[in-house]
């Protein structure tokens, strides 16, 4: 498998990272090098192997249905690049 320019553009778009048009080719080559490296895995027969779900061999713990957090709108928005009246303010979303 190799990443052509269109694929790199699509992946960059999915990842929301701006990549200049003239960088696509070179970036594709870098990524191809890594993809080529990881494709060694094709040598391994995994036909009867279950994927690992977690190295932690335990069950998911459940917490009680109690309200333990909230009432801290100022703290929640304190680091925001833009906020107003405890709302996060972001560029206009067009629906």
């Amino acid at each position: 498998m190799s990443l052509d320019k269109d694929t790199v553009r699509r992946v960059a778009r999915l990842a929301r990272i701006e990549v200049a048009e003239d960088r696509l080719e070179a970036l594709g080559q870098e990524l191809n090098q890594i993809i080529g490296f990881v494709e060694q895995l094709d040598e391994v027969d995994t036909s009867s192997v279950a994927p690992m779900t977690s190295v932690a061999k335990q069950k998911l713990r459940w917490r009680a249905d109690e309200v333990t957090s909230g009432g801290q709108a100022e703290k929640v928005t304190a680091n925001a690049p833009a906020s107003d009246m405890n709302f996060f303010v972001v560029p206009k979303v067009v629906e």
Partner: peptide, 28 residues
């Protein structure tokens, strides 16, 4: 439920903006 699925913030309807938000909900 009283609290959210993955955080301890309240689910009550109609509160002040971001007043029922834990740091988990805010994705910090």
């Amino acid at each position: 439920s009283n609290a959210k699925l993955f955080s301890g913030a309240s689910t009550e309807f109609g509160a002040d903006p971001n007043s029922q938000v834990s740091f988990v909900d805010a994705g910090l």
